[in-house]
Nucleic acid binder design. Structure first.
Length: 291
DNA sequence: CTTACGGCCTGGGTGC
DNA sequence: TGCACCCAGGCCGTAA
């Protein structure tokens, strides 16, 4: 569920709520999405939350060790599709699918809830941070126009697949890819290398505009996004095409369609966003019948 | 190297 | 009411 604007909203909320707090203990429910839970349960207690940051769709807590000895470390949380992380008073009712509890020194606990458990948690030592960072592409809000164009120039993948690829740009997801492509009037299945510079410039601007507007409205709440205060966002009220199949395009009134591109439901206006002229890719192989 | 696709997990909605 | 099926904001491993 959460893409860059939702994660940014959560990070801002967590900053206000938990920076400066000390972690007293960690308790787990299911741990199949946690890297080395035993190490986490041993290392985190006693540490102080020095800051909360976003890196693409990852949230990370910068943790200072209890005493002067020990190195600071970085605790990464990825929310996957259905993850939520919200501070609650200890003893308050526990939502179903809550699997991690970080007990704080002020009588509250940070709770991690994740229905589908597509999220991730891991402790990253300082020495591994550089390797971690370089696996992801630039931030779509920071990249220059020149660098943005260079990302798409020599790529034969569909433009939407590249927008969703975190090693190309960090933070875009399915909603904001579709909304950006609509603004830029580009069909999601267009081959990136076939796009003109002006079209890529338009895409860069669209991405920035969509993400900035979405952050301003505290993200999109489709079914279960809640920020760190447990509040929904409002950008879903401003979606132009996402989940709008059958509704009129806000620009030209043509009926919005849903197709599958890069394995994801993709919403677009068949008139504003002209399909690729001719597929230069090999014809679709017919799937053989299962078994 | 690059691209495409099934799988992971649970729940909500739809149609029979 | 039940059941089968499809869909969901993400990403990883594997195959071609």
């Amino acid at each position: 569920m959460p893409e860059l604007p939702e994660v940014e909203t959560i990070v801002r909320g967590l900053r206000a709520a938990v920076v400066g707090r000390r972690i007293l203990g960690v308790r787990f429910g299911k741990t199949d999405f946690v890297a080395e839970p035993a190490v986490i349960a041993e290392r985190l207690p006693g540490s102080r939350i020095a800051s909360v940051e976003r890196y693409g769709k990852f949230i990370f807590l910068v943790l200072e060790p209890a005493a002067s000895e020990g190195a600071r470390c970085y605790f990464f949380i990825h929310l996957g599709m259905t993850g939520q992380i919200i501070p609650r008073t200890s003893g308050s009712p526990i939502a179903p699918h809550t699997h991690v509890f970080f007990e704080l020194d002020d009588g509250r606990e940070l709770r991690y809830t994740d229905i589908r458990r597509f999220g991730q948690m891991m402790l990253v030592p300082e020495s591994a941070m550089e390797a971690f960072r370089t696996k992801l592409g630039p931030d779509p809000l920071e990249i220059t126009e020149t660098d943005f164009l260079a990302l798409f120039r020599a790529r034969t993948a569909r433009v939407k697949a590249l927008l969703l690829d975190q090693s190309v740009l960090r933070g875009m997801g399915n909603i904001y890819a579709d909304e950006s492509l609509w603004r830029a009037r580009l069909h999601p299945a267009r081959i990136a290398a076939n796009l003109k510079s002006a079209q890529l410039v338009a895409l860069h601007r669209a991405v920035r505009k969509v993400l900035e507007d979405a952050i301003r409205l505290r993200g999109s709440s489709i079914s279960d996004f809640l920020d760190a205060e447990g509040q929904p966002g409002e950008y879903q009220l401003h979606h132009r095409v996402y989940d709008h199949a059958g509704k009129p395009c806000p620009r030209c009134k043509t009926t919005i369609r849903r197709i599958v591109v890069a394995g994801r439901g993709s919403y677009f206006c068949p008139r504003c966003q002209a399909p690729p002229r001719k597929t230069s890719r090999p014809p679709h192989k017919r799937r053989s019948a299962p078994k």
